[in-house]
């Protein structure tokens, strides 16, 4: 799980071009959207594609993303339970 969390932080920083943010800046329980990391709806779409491409998880209902993308901790738990690759 720790390896997956690290991987998720690296991928989020790279895919969302979070230039001034390092892996160390993102705590496992930090809120990713809104006041937390400041991600927005376009970032949510990027993350949905990332889940599909990297872990074989298809989110058909974007509303699901709201809960799944709550924090790195929540994302890692969801991926571990649902990944197909």
């Amino acid at each position: 799980m720790e390896v997956l969390k690290q991987e998720l932080k690296e991928n989020i920083i790279e895919q969302l071009n979070l230039e001034d943010i390092t892996v160390e800046d993102i705590a496992d329980n930090d809120v990713l959207f809104g006041d937390g990391l400041g991600l927005d709806s376009i970032d949510a779409l990027e993350l949905i594609v990332m889940l599909d491409k990297n872990y074989g998880i298809k989110l058909t209902d974007p509303k699901e993303g709201r809960a799944i993308f709550g924090s790195i901790e929540v994302m890692a738990k969801y991926i571990t339970e649902h990944r197909t690759k």
Binding site: Q15, I42, L45, E46, V49, D52, K53
Partner: peptide, 13 residues
């Protein structure tokens, strides 16, 4: 590269 799958919105926009 992705065989017309996994297209992300940012670069398109």
């Amino acid at each position: 590269d992705n065989d017309e799958k996994y297209l992300t919105p940012t670069s398109f926009i």
